[in-house]
Write a protein that binds this DNA or RNA. Sequence first.
DNA 1: GTTATTGCAAAGAATTTGCATAATC
DNA 2: GATTATGCAAATTCTTTGCAATAAC
Lengths: 148, 148
Amino acid sequence: MGRDTAQRRVILEELMKLPSHPTAAELYEIARRRLPRISLGTVYRNLEHLARAGQIRKLGVGPTEARFDADTSPHHHVRCVQCDRLGDVLGLPEDPVPVNPTVAEGYDILAYRLEFVGRCSQCRAEAAVKGLSDNAEQDTGAPGRKQP
Amino acid sequence: MGRDTAQRRVILEELMKLPSHPTAAELYEIARRRLPRISLGTVYRNLEHLARAGQIRKLGVGPTEARFDADTSPHHHVRCVQCDRLGDVLGLPEDPVPVNPTVAEGYDILAYRLEFVGRCSQCRAEAAVKGLSDNAEQDTGAPGRKQP
DNA sequence: GTTATTGCAAAGAATTTGCATAATC
DNA sequence: GATTATGCAAATTCTTTGCAATAAC
């Protein structure tokens, strides 16, 4: 499951030392102190690799493109893992997260961002045809829940 | 609160017609059919303006930079509205969203992405000094909840 | 020896911005 | 007439990729 290179080891070690949640660029600067010739591309590739291997988590990764909605009433959205289509989620309590998340490292919690991840009916149909009924595993950026 | 231009009107009208949740580029293509000389920059500026004015919602907007975390245990994160620092949220039930969000336009819900928005202690301190105790209003990309 | 991984530089994708012109208030 | 908004193009920002060289198994 991947080779043991100095670069990969250093990136993982340094990330494990950090209480913050660094960006790739920050990690690059840090790794550089130990491996002056390391490249940013390598950092990106290794972070991706480590995340896929489940050794680290990649956070804050909503797809890069913004979407817009003329319906400003409070509702949440589902994003299709396959085609990226966005749908509305209805039938949820308006404020579904039972917070006052008490312990938040000194942060005042003001709000939250919640987006569901799912599969749209069209992609489900296509997947069924190809017999790939449930192969898609995905980085959701959060623990989340899998359906039985 | 902004001028009444053909571009802004067309963008809003077209967005209101659409059941999907288009990207800026998609909206640009559509608006173009009515205003062939409209530019993509104008579409971006107007979408931003409309979102600030509360007439539309901007979705799927996590900050663009990915963050990495060596702690793979299930926990959520808070992002500071001011400095973008990321912290851990503890003391939450492991699976805080009471789903089976029943009605989801035919989507199978697989998981969700949840991130809190807050203010870190350092920014709170700075804000207090400047007397700006609570001016920051922000696009959270989701309804969320405000603290009393 | 094969094959994964690297460094480097260039390409991509989405969004933002500077500036002179044009439209709105 | 003052100011906001526009079109256009160039600039930014984060991330990915092609490729020949290198290192790991």
